[in-house]
């Protein structure tokens, strides 16, 4: 029963840690300009240490209570992805190098063998893919980490998006009666909510790559360890489609700042507008802005609507895994 109180610890650690980090980073001048606001205010970055600290400490308490290797694997995955993110925040890695380094974050799951190569699929029951499953695990963490990293573009987006995306996983674990995974998914959700309180518009702290990569790795690892892979894929459809549209537009994995043409432009009244240049990357934000100018808050709200819809589809997907044709 104590497992269900640990998420509250994660919420407090995330919120208080973020608050402390924001002030400590500001004092040391570790800030970046928020270009979407009048006067381009300086915002502390990275908030990744507060996110990783909250998740890892809460998971370590859960490990002490349960002794579960799944919790240990998840904790190590987050630490490795966070370390890659810290290096990226300091040195700014090239896209392919970042992906290559993130493969190492899959290793704790593979080495501790905390996966079951029988993923449930709608209408098909449990698939027996023992040979290719470890390869999919190896690929999954870099994919989810980068998908989250690519939507970290507006105030409050990645933290709010992640909290909503965790709901279908939480519901799936609850229906299945897997209380360990219920606790783990709640720890993740509460960490995101704690961080969201400082990350929401107007942001007082940006997650940085250390935050976004740790969030993506944690999400991917929860999906694998909790055996809800297809549910997670559906819940992440907006992020996956965004990544697919960007990669197919620019012809590879590149950093935001490396894009030659901007997908979205900023007006003098600080509203956002979609680029009409034919060779600008097709991103989800550009698509959402195709009707006309919107404020940053309005774009983020539309992202949340998309994610809430994807989460609903994900819950339906989970229910369909119980159906066999």
């Amino acid at each position: 029963m104590i497992e269900l109180f640990i998420p509250i610890i994660a919420l407090l650690l995330s919120y208080l840690g973020s608050k402390y980090l924001a002030s400590a980073l500001a004092k040391r001048g570790l800030t970046v300009p928020d270009m979407h606001k009048p006067g381009t205010p300086q915002v502390p970055r990275p908030g990744g240490p507060a996110i990783a600290f909250a998740i890892v400490v809460a998971l370590d308490i859960l490990y002490v209570v349960t002794g579960s290797e799944e919790v240990l694997a998840l904790s190590l995955t987050v630490i490795i992805a966070f370390a890659v993110g810290v290096y990226d925040d300091i040195r700014s890695l090239k896209g392919p190098v970042k992906v290559a380094l993130l493969f190492t974050a899959s290793l704790p799951i593979l080495l501790l063998h905390t996966y079951v190569p029988l993923p449930p699929f709608p209408f098909a029951g449990h698939l027996r893919i023992t040979t290719i499953y470890p390869i999919l695990v190896f690929l999954a963490i870099p994919v989810t980490s980068n998908a989250f990293n690519m939507i970290d573009i507006y105030n409050g987006l990645i933290s709010g998006f992640s909290a909503i995306a965790t709901l279908p996983l939480f519901v799936s674990f609850l229906i299945r009666g897997d209380m360990l995974m219920v606790s783990i998914s709640l720890i993740f959700m509460m960490t995101m909510l704690g961080f969201y309180l400082l990350h929401r518009n107007p942001s007082k702290l940006f997650p940085g790559d250390s935050g976004s990569l740790a969030i993506g790795a944690a999400y991917g690892a929860i999906a694998i360890i909790g055996k809800v892979e297809i549910v997670a894929v559906v819940a992440l459809l907006p992020a996956i489609l965004n990544a697919f549209f960007v990669i197919s537009s620019v012809g590879g994995i590149i950093e935001h700042k490396e894009m030659k043409k901007r997908p979205v432009r900023l007006n003098s009244d600080f509203t956002l507008v979609a680029s009409r240049e034919s060779d600008a990357p097709v991103t989800l934000a550009r698509m959402l802005l195709s009707d006309g100018n919107l404020s940053e808050k309005e774009v983020v709200y539309r992202f949340f609507v998309l994610e809430a819809f994807a989460s609903l589809l994900a819950i339906i997907t989970f229910l369909l895994t119980e159906v066999r044709l």
Binding site: F244, F245, S248, N267, S275, R276, V282, M287, S290
Partner: peptide, 24 residues
């Protein structure tokens, strides 16, 4: 993706005025 771009005319309209600021 291409259907969306075509239906919404994402690549058709003239570019915004030069006074518009570009996102970093």
């Amino acid at each position: 993706r291409d259907m969306f771009v075509k239906v919404k005319g994402l690549n058709r309209s003239p570019t915004p005025s030069s006074s518009d600021r570009t996102e970093p």
